[in-house]
Nucleic acid binder design. Structure first.
Ligand code: SF4
Ligand code: SF4
Lengths: 131, 131
DNA sequence: CCAATTAAGACTAAATAGGTCTACTATTTT
DNA sequence: AAAATAGTAGACCTATTTAGTCTTAATTGG
């Protein structure tokens, strides 16, 4: 339906919240849950995924938490979406796997896909967190 | 997952096929199914949806069929997607209904959404059917 | 009337997404 | 060393969406 998933959306909200504060500060899942108003188990899941995708760095143990993996100005929307839901591909044929039915509209979709990725790559977390 | 649905994809294939021929010609579902290699019930469903969305015109009865509702150069990809899956909205907040959680990243998404709609509006069926 | 063809919508099954939970590992504090 | 805190991994169930088919009705040409 040409829409990002809720998990991805939550990811952006969490990351924007973190970007709006001291970037050295460790945020734990519980506090983030309270601050954002999303249930703790869900917040934990999102943070875990973002860490696996390399967007966040984690510190385990008591007094642990998460920080941004790099400056907010260097994290793009495209990267975040890729980390959560995999490569952006409007159609099957614009993904790595491709599509066996190599039809006439395929090349147009690839152009659209490239344009979308371009728009998402030009938008940084820093831009987004300032509203 | 930021992807168009299969039904929408089929719609583009069917429309491109029709655009590549005499635009006055009536195409019936059976012939289109054979030409494109998609099962008849599915083709019928897609054609019905496209007609309801105003992209196609239909002629009922024996010797009936479908034609484009207007010249291929005047039908945009944005229109086709809207006809099949409703308004393009990357996030809840970029749709008509909106989102109760009016968060800080919302305005950025609206910009992205506008950019995507712009890209899709600049692409016509005529463009797409020429490869 | 009869045959062909679209129209409307119900229906089932499959895939995806959303959310929660439990058990485990690592770190700090006492 | 023990306890408390916090992330890790992954299973799990449910709800929603999507895909595809089917049945029945309505329309038109001959
Ligand atoms: S090749 Fe054609 S059928 Fe396959 S995904 Fe691309 S547009 Fe769709
Ligand atoms: S307002 Fe925020 S939470 Fe709601 S859809 Fe937009 S980005 Fe997501």
């Amino acid at each position: 339906m040409l829409r990002i998933t809720k998990i991805t959306d939550y990811g952006f909200i969490l990351l924007a919240h973190m970007a709006n504060q001291d970037q050295e500060l460790l945020h734990n899942a519980k506090d983030l849950s309270a601050a954002i108003g999303i249930p703790l188990p869900t917040v934990s899941k999102v943070l875990k995924i973002l860490t696996q995708g390399g967007i966040l760095k984690s510190h385990q143990g008591s007094k642990g938490g998460y920080t941004l993996g790099k400056p907010a100005a260097e994290i793009t929307a495209a990267e975040i979406i890729e980390a959560v839901e995999g490569p952006v591909a409007i159609t099957d044929c614009s993904s790595a796997e491709g599509c066996e039915r190599n039809c006439v509209v395929s090349s147009s979709w690839q152009q659209v896909n490239t344009a979308v990725i371009g728009a998402l790559s030009g938008l940084t977390l820093d831009d987004m967190s300032h509203g």
